[in-house]
């Protein structure tokens, strides 16, 4: 029905739209679409090229698109194709946006070896590169804390160290989104723009997020990041392998966070931080697979999680040799 309205947009007048049966969202889109077309015809010089008109049309359709979880497979494919075209028009880059769903029988988990991490921050750099984070505000999902002894929490740690590492007597503890099994952030979201997928990854529909930042306040682990400005990534640095719920280009005023590199992990690859780690301190795997490395660690090592008493059940364990 939505496609039908979009086709009629050019010709229909407001009366016809309002009399027509359909969703309020669709009717509003058609009305505004008519207005936009009228404006375009009067200010023809402003929208000179076909590309500019196409981009305008794409942005309007984006504004009125449905909730990702409510989309059918066809609607998802059409949405993804529209975003690919949008990136092409805006940056000149050919990107592939994936919309692969969670595989049954997979629940992702992560383990971090605090006695092996050298604090080299290779993971942070790889994450920024992989996930197309805003380069101008230096947004980062991962924070490495230089810790000493039992500090109880990361608040005593230093995350802005700039000396040779590892320092004797200190250890390095990395935080990011822990993809809680009982996530407080998704409950705080008033629009349902963030949820936990079947494979345990907590994701954000950037087009459904209204930027209220309730989730940021609800997260006990400070894992969520807000786009205070339009994110900027140089065209040549854009990672073209994207996922709709992952590293596709974000806009100003939306939340984003670590997605366990959903664009990689759903294809069987490890997250970029795991691959970049020079020491192998980061281990990623399927918690439901009894032969996986992560299950071996949980069974054989002394593991702990941060703020366990809150009951959020993060799927991110720390262990030491």
């Amino acid at each position: 029905m939505k496609e039908g309205l979009e086709k009629n947009t050019e010709s229909c007048c407001a009366d016809m739209v309002l009399k027509k049966k359909g969703s309020r969202r669709g009717a509003l889109a058609a009305l505004l679409g008519g207005a936009a077309t009228a404006a375009a015809s009067t200010a023809g010089a402003a929208l000179a090229t076909e590309e500019e008109r196409e981009l305008k049309r794409i942005k309007r359709n984006e504004f009125f698109q449905k909730y990702y979880r409510a989309m059918t497979e066809e609607e998802r494919a059409a949405t993804v194709a529209r975003f690919e075209r949008k990136t092409k028009l805006e940056t000149g880059m050919d990107v592939q946006i994936d919309s692969t769903s969670a595989r049954p029988g997979v629940l992702f988990g992560y383990a971090f070896n605090i006695s092996k991490c050298e604090g080299s921050r290779e993971c942070v750099a790889a994450c920024v590169q992989e996930n197309n984070q805003d380069r101008t505000s230096n947004m980062q999902y991962i924070k490495l804390f230089e810790m000493e002894g039992d500090m109880g929490s990361v608040h005593g740690g230093d995350s802005e160290y700039s000396h040779e590492t590892p320092v004797d007597g200190k250890y390095y503890l990395g935080t990011q989104c822990f993809h809680c099994e009982n996530p407080p952030c998704t409950k705080a979201c008033p629009t349902g723009a963030t949820w936990k997928e079947a494979d345990g990854i907590v994701v954000v529909d950037y087009n459904w997020c209204i930027g209220c930042r309730y989730c940021e306040a609800a997260c006990p682990y400070f894992a969520r990041r807000f786009n205070w400005k339009e994110p900027e990534v140089p065209a040549e640095e854009i990672n073209p392998n994207q996922h709709y719920l992952g590293n596709r280009m974000r806009t100003k005023g939306v939340m984003e966070k670590c997605t366990f590199c959903i664009q990689r992990t759903r294809k069987g690859l490890s997250p970029a931080c795991v691959e970049a780690c020079p020491t192998g301190a980061r281990v990623f795997g399927n918690l439901l697979d009894p032969d996986s490395e992560i299950r071996w660690i949980l069974a054989h090592k002394k593991v702990f999680r941060l703020k366990e008493d809150l009951g959020a059940e993060p799927k991110f364990w720390y262990y030491a040799d």
Partner: peptide, 28 residues
């Protein structure tokens, strides 16, 4: 050696899924 065989020590060169190929001790 035990930790390396189990997966707590050392680095896996393939993704989390499928055949498990790990680095030898001398790689790191």
């Amino acid at each position: 050696l035990q930790s390396w065989l189990g997966g707590a020590h050392g680095k896996r060169v393939t993704g989390w899924d499928g055949v498990r190929i790990i680095e030898n001790c001398t790689a790191c």
